[in-house]
Design a protein around this nucleic acid. Structure first.
Lengths: 238, 238
DNA sequence: AGTAAATGTTATCAGTTGATAACAAAACTG
DNA sequence: CAGTTTTGTTATCAACTGATAACATTTACT
């Protein structure tokens, strides 16, 4: 329940373009953003145990000032969470993945090129891993988003393309191959941007190969699944 | 260079079975192990910023005592690193992967079943991620190990099986598909044991599917690679 | 048994932490 | 311009941090 609450709380913040009527307090909001940005940077380097004094120093203000913008350190951390997870999510992705004028393959190749470009930078990546270790909840929510909007969509659209019935329900087992290629890409980001290892230079080739891998075995897993669900009467929607 | 030094320093510790001549000081070494175990547990929960007092409390001793076994906190952290990375590495794996009496597929399926069983538990997994974020070096070394002993081996053995020349050199690009399926499994561990998400219940099926995916596209990537290296004269061994 | 080394505890230090209160300067409002 | 709100700083707190020194106890060896 907690994860779901967080989700509904956050989604309205995805579009933060609307300007207030007057430019009043623009500097105040800017300062708040500066603090969050400095906090994100610092936390991404040392984890959420990083000190508020170091953050204040980076902004160029004194440490007690932070407490006028964020009552507690946890509030600041939560603000960092929000910007990291929400500023990077493109609401257009959801619709683009449903566009049946293009092949499933094309849609997901385009999506993943875009996704890794906006997601695979050190600060958000590191924060995401630190966040997962510190408090699984927000990361659970984010992965739920990935699963619902991306991976289930992939399975569904591909099934339809294969002439199979358009079934909304996708079991954890049927979803796993999609998670595997997604996870492979995430681990690529981990190796490249966090461990600073040498990786394959052409990420677009990696994406392409991963989709090849997926489409190569997907049909078999769908059929395996279909065989199970035929005999499995009670399956819930979630 | 640092990573390589660490590697050579650590490898001799893999086999710690040899008992000292007399059982003298066995309790001392046991206490040291207890401290490291408590530290591993605590650090795995809150990260390496965790306090020495909490560790001492878990062992049931006073905090200054830790400093008789480990001069500084960093020394204790390093000891935790060693146990985590080395106690879990089975030296037999290296040889088993070279056994050409079994198909490449069989060898790697057996290996991965064993590997995930010994590696995918919360404490080592969490420590590994915390370690990567805190200090990439040791994790770089470990990934180097994976790459050299597992993934390059997979590419090489599979190439031979396909009748291609037994080439020791494997480029980063040719290695990437192998990294992708490995990374997919790592991310499975992340989702299951750290984020506590619902995942596909049958890990052996996941491994099997991943190997299917790999062998499905591998040949193409080998040929792509062969085509490049033909025209590429200067390629170093590392 | 007697002594020295090894193992443990108590007391304490200086530095850092998140957080608060009191005060100062700036900006907005009438 | 006067007064009020907003934004900022200084000073300070109590709790906690890694680490050290002095002292106590246990263990091992002759």
């Amino acid at each position: 329940m907690g994860a779901t609450d967080t989700m509904t709380d956050l989604t309205h913040l995805v579009e933060t373009d609307a300007e207030p009527k007057k430019a009043r307090r623009a500097t105040t909001e800017q300062r708040a953003r500066d603090i969050v940005a400095a906090a994100a940077e610092h936390f991404s380097e040392v984890g959420f145990a990083g000190s508020t004094r170091e953050i204040a120093k980076r902004v160029g203000v004194t440490q007690p000032l932070l407490y006028r913008y964020f009552p507690t350190k946890d509030d600041l951390i939560e603000a960092v969470y929000k910007t990291v997870y929400l500023e990077r999510w493109n609401p257009a992705w959801d619709e683009a993945l449903k566009d049946r004028n293009r092949t499933t393959r094309e849609r997901f190749e385009t999506f993943y090129r875009d996704y890794v470009e906006t997601t695979f930078t050190p600060i958000p990546l590191r924060l995401s891993y630190y966040a997962g270790l510190r408090d699984a909840e927000i990361n659970q929510w984010y992965n739920h988003l990935i699963e619902e909007l991306i991976l289930k969509q992939l399975v569904r659209e591909h099934r339809v393309e294969l002439g199979m019935p358009d079934e909304a329900y996708v079991s954890a087992a049927a979803l796993e191959p999609a998670w595997q290629i997604h996870g492979g890409l995430m681990h690529y980001g981990w190796r490249k941007h966090i461990l600073k290892l040498r990786v394959a230079p052409d990420i677009e080739q990696v994406i392409s190969d991963n989709l090849d891998m997926y489409f190569c075995i997907a049909e078999n897993t769908y059929r395996r699944e279909a065989h199970i669900t035929e005999t499995d009467i009670a399956h819930d929607e979630n």
